[in-house]
Nucleic acid binder design. Sequence first.
DNA 1: TGGGTGTTTATGGGCGTCAATGGAAGCTGT
DNA 2: ACAGCTTCCATTGACGCCCATAAACACCCA
Lengths: 158, 158
Amino acid sequence: MDRFVSNTTSRLDAKGRVSVPASFRSVLGRDGFDGLYCYPTLDQAAIDAGGHALLAEIDSLIGRFPPYSQEREELRVALYGRSATLKIDGEGRVMLTEELKSHAGIVDSVAFVGLGHKFQMWEPERFRAHLAKATATVRALTRRLGSHSPDSDPGARE
Amino acid sequence: MDRFVSNTTSRLDAKGRVSVPASFRSVLGRDGFDGLYCYPTLDQAAIDAGGHALLAEIDSLIGRFPPYSQEREELRVALYGRSATLKIDGEGRVMLTEELKSHAGIVDSVAFVGLGHKFQMWEPERFRAHLAKATATVRALTRRLGSHSPDSDPGARE
DNA sequence: TGGGTGTTTATGGGCGTCAATGGAAGCTGT
DNA sequence: ACAGCTTCCATTGACGCCCATAAACACCCA
């Protein structure tokens, strides 16, 4: 597998460290990035994280704007200026910065959510709410797409 | 990592010295530039800083204007003429010149902000305001680009 | 199919190293 | 000789790195 999938929750220990799920670490290893590149998700109370694939996405986003334009400079500040490269210790743990934690409302536990080329970290309760909302949106979407969705099985709730 | 990312704040000591963050120093070391190349940011109350990569950017910016044009000469003055190469002492500290400090409004503490190929130094409070503005702009931008999931809530619940 | 066993992951803590900071001593030019 | 820098040293506290235990899972074999 070469992308981040599934989601798990783990707790911060007394030193503020948290284990990155093993499956995510193996994707990062394949990506070749040393450490974990993170920044506050722009429009959500979450943290975006990944490796080279994520950096490439950021570069392409910035590259869409003309050099020296104000938009470009502000993107730089928002993306580079707020990001952090976290070190992953021998046991696969990272320490989140204060800024990242406060943006996501993370206190003592983190939900890791795979999104393909990157993953997100959420405060678990917020993620539950976010997921419920997203699920509702998706239901409406598939319904609108015509053919009733293949797996819209009632009763499949948390 | 080969670029400046993240942001940290540190204080000037009694002699006016300030520690450049270790991660920035390691990028500078890789860049090969001895010291820290600085100049007042043209359109902001901040200081631009970096090494060879920054010098290269300046050259390319100046090169966009026709030789001997007035714009070109004025850019030269603004970028070369106001710049300073600060020495980095054994402990990774620099001393800002009076001109740099007054341009950025820096008194007793400095926010270091990574922007990829260069970084900036801000008076911390001003940086907070600047970051808030940039973040707002970028949110609007990314929404317009549709680069994020359509997360608009049709039926907000919770 | 169930029990047992071995491997991998998660988690907790100890210790050494390095970064950040403060201060003192040596230079240099005026 | 003095002021302003620069270089050097000392302290503290955070963080990186290592080991030790425990829990989860997978695998194998009876």
